[in-house]
Each structure stands twice: as C-alpha cells, then as structure tokens.
Amino acid sequence: MVMRGGWRVKLLQLWLPLGFFLLFTLFPFYWMTVTSLKPNAELYNTQMMPLLLYHPTLKHYVDLLTQTSFLLWTWNTMLVAVVSTAISLVLGTMLAYPLARINFPGSALIAFAVAATYLVPQPLLFIPMADIINRMGLGDTLTSVILTYPTMLVPFCAWLLMGYFKSVPHELEEAARIDGASHFQAMWRIVLPLCTPGFISAGIFAFTLAQNEFLYALIFLTKTDVRTVPVGAIAELIRGDVFYWGQLMAAALLGSIPVAIIYSFFVEHYVAGLTAGSVKG
C-alpha cells in the first residue's frame, strides 16, 4: 500500500502490473477499433499483420448511423438502464438496510428469499415473464424491460449494499438515535452517506447489467424503434450467415465509450468523496 523507495519499486509495484492489466483489458478494444475502421477487403486479408491498419475508413460508422436506428437504440438503452438502476437502488436499499442493521424476526428468511430469486435462471424465466408482460399490455414498450430488469438487479444490489451498511459502526447510529433521530433519519443522514462507494459500486453493476441484457429485451422489444443496442445490433447486423463485422464493432464501441466516460466521472467522485486520509498514497 505504502509507496516507499525509488523508481525501481514503483516500476515493479505499479507500472509493470498496471501495464499488464491494461493490456489484458484493453487489447480487445484496440481490436474492435481497428476492425471497425478497416475496409472489408483489408479485414479479410490474412496476409497482413492483424493489428495494423492501412486504409482506415469511416464507412462502417456511417452505415451504422444511416442504415440502422443506432442513435435511437442508444437513447432507449440509456433510458432503460438509468431508470431500472434507480428503481433497483431504491428497492435494494429498502431491503438491505433493515436486513443489515436491525435484527428482527423474519429477517433471515427474507435474506434467503431475496437471494433465492437467482435460483431459477433467466433462460427459463422469460416465457412466464413474457406472459405477465403480455397480460399487462406492455409488449413493445420500454416499460416492459424497466419493470423486469429490477427482478435481476434488486437482489444483487441488496446483498452488495448489506455489506457496506454493516461496515458502518453501530455507535454512530446510536448516538444519533439518542439525540432523538428516528430510524429513518439515522439511516438517511448518517449511514447512507457513508456508504456512497457501495451505491456507486452497486449502481455501476446494475446499470451495466441493464444495458447489456439480451433475452428479455429480445422477447419484449420487437419493433426497431423500441429496441436496445444489443438486440438492435444483433437483429439487424447479423443477417443469415453474414455478419456485418465492421458495423457490429462500431456499435460495440459507440455503445460503450459514452458509458465509460460517465463512469470515469463517478469513479473520480467516489474516490474523492471518501474520508480524507483513509488511504496512504
């Protein structure tokens, strides 16, 4: 943790491992970028060094933006992901807080029941879920996925938040209670603010899962103007046994880079918002 010593230590402890991990995580993105910029003739050329790019073209991006409803899909995806993440964080907190900080009869059962929702896997759930959505008349609306995604996200958010809620010392809350704060006030003013990293962590997870989700979106969203990025791209860029590789990769990049930028903002905040001096740099 604590950095002492000269550049040699810094190289061994920081730059070498960091370089390794960055190569590991970012290499496929380099690949996607190069692929999305290659004309088809170059893409299919096995004689060339695959990492190099000789005649970059923006054709795949232009085609993606003009021949498909990609921007609309992106907007749908963001809307769905933001709303379902917000719902999941609120519901997750409502579940996790009492479970983590109050010992009341039935809490163990609730905790188990919540996690048990993962026991029936999604590839099976989608048929009854489609039935529910149809009965509610929500087919082909973004509401259908906004309502179903939290079923996957709430349990995870609740469990993750429980860990963070538990880590806040009871004394802090008790002091507030003695000063006359209600349970809710103690939670709202004392415990929740201390758990900001937990919320960001759970939020990132929920958001990502929501914007990645494929099966429910495939079944519930069938018109091109309500589709999300993954379903839209797969449905319209995989045609028979012909993949529109360049456009698929362009869609992958355009779909994820804005999110990365938003995340970098959050990541910065949750690092900055932490109690000063907790980490030795």
Partner: peptide, 24 residues
C-alpha cells in the same frame, strides 16, 4: 403489415415465446 425482423439465431426464441404466450 408490421414486418418484424430478428436475426436467424433468435427467431426460434421469438416464435416459441409468441406461441407460448398466445400473442405477438
């Protein structure tokens, strides 16, 4: 006529869901 398109690999999943839920 609403011409709904999906990819070849996902078509059967769509069809199964339509048949099982009775609409779509």
């Amino acid at each position: 006529i609403d011409y709904e398109l999906t990819s070849v690999g996902t078509l059967q999943t769509r069809v199964s869901a339509i048949i099982e839920t009775g609409s779509g």
